[in-house]
């Protein structure tokens, strides 16, 4: 694999995991724009642990745990807010994390932080498959059923005894954990971290992959991340017009597939669909 293809594959894997970080709360109807903040926590924790001699695998696990704990700590107060206010709160959290990282000299501050161990594309792909398997499994359970129900009608779902707030907190926390994994993968593949990278654009793209791929199935974010990571690369030959082409693709998709590329209706219309019962 050429150097260019390797880098694209690595970015694709990180984007897919980040898309699932955005997907989990979105599956409950919560828009989390703090993905970049959770990614930064995962990335820096993993890098610091690795710098202190912790093996690579355990460092990544440590990064995921740190972002999961941060996700739980943030979701409890933040999920008291609804709609746009919740989104603003998560965005603010992300900005606070970036500002702290930028000003802590022990973490390199504005100069950045060098990460020791390198991770190649193959083990990164294995981690991505694990994340995908976890989301597919969660979606096939009653928890997945509750997430969809909460997204469709939160108050109506509560009537059946579903603890709506607990489901929302669990989804945001699990999503934060996935973001930590994405951040750790980024840290160990590129071996250099700077706080400015973890900005709102990173969160926006993660949300975009999940939304455009479709929230109705666990495969949607994978398709979304694949398409919208690779389309700008395919359009690279068009030089500066590639961003115009990318924008047009997004607009067309929103017009033609407003519920995302992959919907349950689409799957149900397939002749070989799997029966639940």
């Amino acid at each position: 694999m050429s150097g260019y293809a390797t880098q694209i594959a690595a970015i694709l894997i990180i984007n897919v995991v980040a898309a699932y970080a955005a997907y989990m709360p979105l599956a409950c109807g919560q828009l989390n724009l703090g993905i970049a903040g959770f990614m930064a926590i995962g990335a820096y924790t993993s890098a610091v642990l690795n710098g202190h001699g912790v093996p690579l695998g355990l460092s990544i696990l440590g990064g995921a745990c740190a972002s999961t704990i941060a996700g739980l700590a943030v979701s409890i107060p933040v999920l008291r807010a609804r709609g746009i206010y919740l989104t603003i709160a998560t965005l603010a959290f992300s900005e606070v994390v970036a500002a702290v990282l930028l000003n802590v000299n022990a973490l390199g501050g504005a100069s950045g932080f060098v990460v020791n161990d390198h991770m190649s594309v193959a083990p990164m792909a294995a981690v991505m498959v694990l994340v995908l398997a976890a989301v597919v499994w969660l979606s096939s359970t009653r928890f997945g059923l509750c997430m969809t129900a909460v997204r469709n009608d939160g108050r109506g779902t509560a009537v059946f005894g579903v603890k709506v707030r607990r489901v929302e907190i669990a989804a945001l926390t699990i999503g934060a954990g996935f973001a930590g994994v994405a951040g750790a993968l980024y840290a160990h593949h590129f071996n250099y971290l700077e706080a400015q990278h973890f900005n709102v654009l990173l969160s926006t793209y993660a949300v975009l992959y999940a939304l455009l791929g479709g929230l109705q199935t666990p495969v949607g974010p994978l398709i979304g991340a694949l398409v919208f990571t690779l389309v700008p690369e395919f359009l690279r030959s068009t030089d500066q017009w590639r961003y115009v082409g990318f924008g047009v693709c997004i607009i067309l998709l929103m017009l033609l597939r407003p519920e995302g590329l992959l919907t349950r209706r689409l799957i149900h219309d397939l002749p070989f669909r799997r029966r639940l019962a």
Binding site: R142, L145, C146, T148, A149, R151, N152, D153, G156, T157, V159, F160, G161, V162, Q216, R264, L276, A277
Partner: peptide, 22 residues
């Protein structure tokens, strides 16, 4: 409910199974 509150993205069986949650 008077105004139906079905979960439109779930199948009929999944909607029914939601009622077993408690």
């Amino acid at each position: 409910f008077q105004n139906l509150r079905l979960m439109k993205h779930l199948t009929v069986l999944e909607n029914i199974m939601l009622g077993q949650h408690r």
